[in-house]
């Protein structure tokens, strides 16, 4: 199996000139397991994740994945790299007017010619796989419903199915549970951990809920002010670390 580890070197992102959101991030992410990134809002967690699949253009630095620098890719090369990177979004980002099935199959679009995609002529094996994924996430009976008719938890299940459909070699999740209730959040994290574990997909997840992160993730990265301030095992995360990451202490019980 190909190497699925990710190396980030000196990653800087400035939305406004001279005001960096990411101030030189260095990270090595192993080719398996779930890595959580925690930190206060606005600290660049989302930006970091989006730099990896280039939904946000990094200002400088390297993102090394399978011998390529993702930060330098262009055009067809970038699209080919994106196919191998799955992404789960905070607000699910399903195409609302398409059916659940079409949304899951969106994960295969990178492999489809424009004409075939337009006619929905997906290979039978893709459709078969999409159905079995929908079985796994418990939505097989919803295949022909429009995505905007689903509840939040259901939508996120479709979002995960769509990402897994890509056969990703790394899965990025940008606050996948922030728009969900606590019970559903746990279910979604379980589903993601389960699917990724069985397929050996490393996961990088931005998450607000520290307890949830501790429960599911093998490694925690704490960010504040555009820098990494904690990196280690969840059990090693102390209240002092949390205070450093989030500032203040009244919120820690």
């Amino acid at each position: 199996m190909t190497d699925r580890s990710l190396k980030i070197r000196g990653l800087v992102k400035e939305y406004k000139r001279g005001v960096p959101v990411l101030k030189g991030i260095d990270l090595d992410i192993a080719g398996d397991g779930i890595t959580a990134i925690i930190g206060p809002s606005g600290t660049g967690k989302s930006t970091l994740i989006r730099c990896i699949n280039r939904l946000v253009e990094p200002t400088s630095g390297q993102i090394l994945f399978q011998g390529m620098d993702l930060a330098q890719l262009k055009g067809a090369e970038l699209r080919a790299a994106r196919r191998r990177i799955g992404m789960v979004f905070q607000e699910y980002n399903l195409v609302e007017r398409l059916t659940v099935m079409e949304n899951v199959l969106t994960g295969r679009l990178g492999y489809m010619t424009a004409f075939k995609a337009w006619l929905r002529k997906f290979p039978p094996s893709d459709i078969e796989e999409a159905y079995s994924l929908l079985d796994t996430v418990g939505l097989a009976n919803f295949a022909n419903q429009r995505a905007d008719s689903l509840s939040g938890g259901q939508r996120q299940r479709v979002g995960i199915a769509r990402a897994v459909m890509q056969h990703p070699e790394i899965l990025l999740a940008d606050e996948p549970t922030s728009s969900l209730d606590p019970k559903t959040s746990v279910e979604i994290m379980e589903l993601m951990a389960d699917l990724a574990g069985k397929r050996n997909i490393p996961v990088v997840v931005n998450i607000h809920n520290v307890e949830l992160a501790k429960r599911f993730c093998g490694r925690m990265i704490g960010m504040t002010g555009g820098k990494v301030v904690f990196d280690g095992d969840p059990s090693a995360l102390t209240d002092a670390n949390l205070k450093e990451i989030y500032g203040g202490e009244n919120w820690i019980e």
Partner: peptide
């Protein structure tokens, strides 16, 4: 490996 193959 696809563990879902049986269900499929």
């Amino acid at each position: 490996s696809t563990p879902d193959a049986t269900t499929a």
